[in-house]
Simulated assay, not measured.
Amino acid sequence: MPTPPLTGPLCTRESLADDLLRLGVRPGETLLAHTSLSALGWVSGGAVAVVQALLDALGPDGTLVVPAHTGDNSEPSAWRNPPVPAEWWPVLRASIPAYDPLTSPSFGVGVVPEAVRTWPGALRSANPQTSFAAVGPAAATITAGHARDCRLGERSPLARLEKAGARVLLLGAGYDACTAFHLAEYRIPGPDVENSFAAMTSQGRRWMTVRERSICEDGFVELGAAFEKEAVGAAGETAAPTAVVRGLVGAAETRLFPLADAVAYAERWLAQNRPRQA
């Protein structure tokens, strides 16, 4: 087979850090990053270099937060990619390893979050499906108290990030990956669902079912586009604090914006544009 062509530009730890600072990342801030390594170009050092660049840009007083979700720890009858035979379901419920913040690998969120999860000094929240990992002075505050029956709501790191004045960095990722929008789902009327996973308790491993808010990414791309249009319109040419700042980091189209502003806009938009469910 022919060797596939290289895709550039060539990115290094130093060039990525420079790009992040030029975009507007501020030393000392708290940043929730959603990332696509492949969107950046050819990265010398791969995911590790990306994490180093993010930490360099944030400096010793800044905190980096990433989703470290484990969506594979879930009810097997609901699996669709791929579905599994019904006769497997009881075996899977009995054998899926219990969530362990130290050892459970992240799933479906990319290689950069997995690098952060295993980073020296990283802390990780306790929800068996939608944990977040963090490195930096605010890591303990951000990751503490993540309830099992609150994936992305008021008792999750998202609410703590909002309180901390964090910003969201979509580094080659789209608005469909913006977990902050889910916090808004918890603040508007919506249905609850049963949610199952393997967890470790004082009695050992248990297959648990909790009831909590139904969440989904339907409409997030349109929501993000509307939020960006309004934010840019409000900012004009001055890039006001509420603006969505856009630019390139490596080859990746990147967006940077305040998490609280995104959540507040999403509350209004979802209430108006998402069909109500019983």
Rank of each mutant, 00 (worst) to 15 (best):
F107Y: 15
N73V: 10
P97M: 08
N127T: 06
R124A: 09
W89L: 00
V112H: 06
P82A: 02
V112M: 07
L37C: 03
L32E: 01
A94N: 06
V111C: 12
A78W: 03
L54V: 12
G59P: 14
T130H: 13
S131K: 04
L32N: 00
W89R: 04
S38K: 14
H69A: 11
S95I: 00
T103V: 14
S125V: 08
E75Y: 03
S106A: 15
P97A: 07
E75V: 04
D72N: 15
W119N: 08
R124K: 09
L40K: 07
G59R: 14
A68L: 08
N81P: 00
V112Q: 05
P67K: 09
S106F: 03
L32Y: 04
A33L: 02
T118A: 14
A33F: 03
W89M: 00
V112A: 09
Q52D: 15
G108W: 11
V116S: 10
N73E: 10
V43D: 10
V111M: 07
V43H: 11
V111K: 05
A53M: 12
D61R: 15
L37G: 04
A86P: 01
P101E: 10
N81V: 03
P82C: 03
W119M: 05
H34C: 02
L123K: 11
H34F: 10
S77R: 12
W88N: 01
T70P: 01
A126G: 12
W88V: 00
R80M: 02
A78V: 00
T130I: 00
N127F: 04
P105A: 11
D100N: 15
V43G: 07
L123F: 01
D61H: 14
L92S: 01
G110V: 08
A68G: 14
A78R: 14
L32V: 00
L37H: 05
V51A: 11
T35A: 12
G41P: 06
W89C: 05
Q52M: 07
E114T: 03
I96C: 06
S125M: 05
I96F: 01
A39C: 04
V84W: 00
D72F: 09
G46A: 10
L55R: 15
E114P: 03
A47E: 14
L92Q: 04
S44L: 15
A115S: 09
P83C: 02
W88P: 00
V51R: 06
P105M: 11
E87Q: 05
Y99F: 15
N81K: 05
S125P: 08
L37D: 03
T103Q: 13
S74Q: 08
N127P: 06
E75F: 02
G59F: 13
P113H: 06
L64D: 11
